[in-house]
């Protein structure tokens, strides 16, 4: 494996851009000013905030990009093309579809997601949500709108490549549905139930649903529970009660499940790391995990060990 030096690749990138703008800033027309080739894939290099922290580095080579740890171990960074194809293959396999059907589905979800963000940003008062049809061959992607869709909504919902159906005259916006759920959950919490989960279904006009684990001394009849709810949510809701928990987080207690976990108790259930994050200090690197994972000060983390 021949790999290029990461810092070399970065230097090439910076030099490219400096040249381009130094010669181009006087030309507001934006005419093409530079055709300098990019070395490596643009954007995959990341400048550490503090070189002293920069043990793991990215190195680019003709056969891909690699993350190299301080101890010399390395993992391959999957390319954009590979990652999309793998997910499409996996998803098609799960669904029993062809890869081309999965690709079509992906294009639909990209289009309707783009439209949803546009409408939610400009018209949050009427945005409800979005949905795909049950299969790639059944119906267009859908945007749900509170009340009648006006011309502005129809213009915002237009997509250049993917037809999107507007399902309007819905009773609640997304924000209102969220408030209804919050009201439901807090009411049940105040009643004294300890384990329950709720959702709304935009395809059924925002109908609420809740599943509650029964608790001694509290009602186990859905109709009695219904009578305890505020009037604005009590009539349009499905209620289930069960002996089984409705909510069970996947883990608690102890540190991230990492390659070199340093936990005081190996029997503790562990967690998985999520994404690299920024806190309030842009110079401080962070890693995310679930909030219910505890004793995270016990972990010792090695870069990208899982």
């Amino acid at each position: 494996m021949r790999r290029l030096g990461w810092r070399t690749a970065l230097a090439g990138l910076a030099a490219c851009c400096m040249v381009a703008v130094a010669s181009g800033t006087g030309h507001a027309s934006g005419a093409r000013l530079s055709s300098a080739p990019w070395e490596g894939e643009p954007g995959t290099s990341h400048v550490p905030e503090d070189p002293g922290l920069g043990e793991p580095i990215l190195e680019h080579g003709p056969d891909g990009t690699y993350l190299v740890n301080a101890d010399g171990s390395w993992v391959r960074v999957q390319s954009s093309e590979e990652s999309l194809e793998q997910d499409l293959r996996d998803y098609a396999k799960v669904k029993g579809w062809t890869v081309e059907q999965a690709r079509h589905r992906h294009a639909e979800s990209e289009a309707v997601g783009e439209v949803a963000v546009r409408i939610a940003g400009v018209r949050p008062d009427v945005f409800v949500g979005s949905a795909l049809g049950p299969t790639p061959d059944e119906g267009n992607p859908m945007i749900y709108i509170k009340g009648p869709a006006d011309d502005e909504i129809r213009a915002l919902a237009a997509h250049p490549t993917t037809p999107i159906d507007i399902i309007d005259n819905q009773p609640y916006s997304a924000a209102e549905l969220d408030e209804r759920l919050a009201l439901l959950m807090n009411t049940l919490d105040q009643v004294g139930y300890d384990n329950f989960a709720s959702a709304y279904d935009i395809r059924q006009r925002g109908r609420l649903m809740v599943n509650i684990q029964m608790r001694p001394g509290l009602p186990d009849d859905p109709e009695i529970v219904r009578s305890l709810l505020p009037r604005e949510i009590s009539q349009d809701i499905e209620i289930w009660l069960s002996l089984e928990p409705a909510s069970h987080p996947d883990s608690a207690y102890a540190g991230l499940w990492m390659g070199h976990l340093n936990s005081p108790n190996p029997d503790y259930t562990r967690c998985t790391s999520g994404y690299s994050t920024f806190g309030r200090s842009p110079r401080a690197p962070h890693i995310s995990t679930a909030g219910h994972c505890r004793l995270l000060d016990q972990f010792k983390r090695f870069p990208r060990a899982g």
Partner: peptide, 10 residues
Amino acid sequence: QQHQTAVQEL
């Protein structure tokens, strides 16, 4: 939750 790490995150 997020936790500061001892190594530079990418």
